[in-house]
């Protein structure tokens, strides 16, 4: 079985031949590093889909290496929109800054009577392992590198519906710029998430909440209804 991996030094695909058997990509990468090529560089951790370390793209789609079973001819590349450090290893710092900008934490806590129903409200969102697959799949980054992005907005949403949060507005205020309105609702993030999280839905919910707090969709606000305007539309 042949696996093709993008090598950063040459910026080209390198082929590795592996034994024909059912195996995870992570296991294959470790086998290559051990027996064929110690310079092949990737990151990994738990092997159990929970540490968020090993996401890559296989045939253009985001996958956790530890949860993907390889097939002959697979093309393995690093995540999109992350500076490549070496081979499949990327720099996640810039992506993680979006968590700070979106202030995705409990702003002002109060004791609450949380029920199993409340738990369900954020159960899926809090399964997030910060693997950055959704960030890599998001086409908004082609045009706006400052977009807060799916995982940060999902996390902001998770805190905004937490019964313990007294300052929901504090969160909503911080997801307006480069935030909820910049999403195109294409749903690529939802397809990419290995944990079955639906950031697109969370962003739509945040939009609803934003309207409740008096925010409006800036693309609507800038539209001119008075006279025909055939000029440049920055939001098109």
């Amino acid at each position: 079985m042949i696996l093709q991996i993008l090598r950063s030094e040459t910026n080209s695909l390198q082929s590795y031949t592996l034994e024909e058997k059912e195996t995870t990509l992570l296991h294959a990468l470790m086998e290559i590093k051990k027996t064929q090529d110690p310079t092949l560089t990737f990151t990994a951790g738990c092997r159990a889909s929970v540490c968020g370390t090993c996401a890559v793209r296989v045939n253009g789609k985001e996958q956790l290496s530890c949860a993907y079973k390889i097939q002959d001819g697979d093309i393995v590349e690093p995540l999109n929109y992350h500076p490549i450090l070496r081979d499949l290893k990327v720099d996640k710092n810039r992506a993680k800054e979006t968590l700070v900008k979106s202030t995705a934490w409990l702003h002002s806590a109060k004791e609450a009577c949380s029920s199993p129903k409340d738990e369900k409200l954020t159960e899926r969102q809090t399964d997030c392992i910060l693997c950055n697959s959704c960030y890599s799949a998001c086409p908004v980054y082609v045009v706006n590198p400052d977009f807060l992005g799916p995982f940060s907005l999902t996390r902001a949403y998770r805190y905004s519906v937490d019964k313990r949060e007294e300052d929901v507005k504090g969160i909503i205020d911080n997801v307006q710029t480069n935030g909820v309105w910049d999403c195109t609702l294409c749903g690529e993030c939802t397809l990419a998430c290995p944990k079955g999280i639906d950031p697109k839905m969370d962003i739509m919910m945040l939009r609803g909440k934003s309207l409740q707090y008096g925010y409006t969709d800036p693309s609507l606000a800038q539209q001119s209804f008075g006279e025909p305007n055939f000029g440049f539309d920055p939001n098109f």
Partner: peptide, 22 residues
């Protein structure tokens, strides 16, 4: 942990805070 927002599983109760943790 409850005060910083850990999303614990919960039980049905009329009480609040850590008494709701499953």
């Amino acid at each position: 942990l409850d005060s910083i927002g850990v999303p614990f599983s919960r039980v049905e109760t009329k009480e609040s805070g850590i008494k709701t943790v499953a």
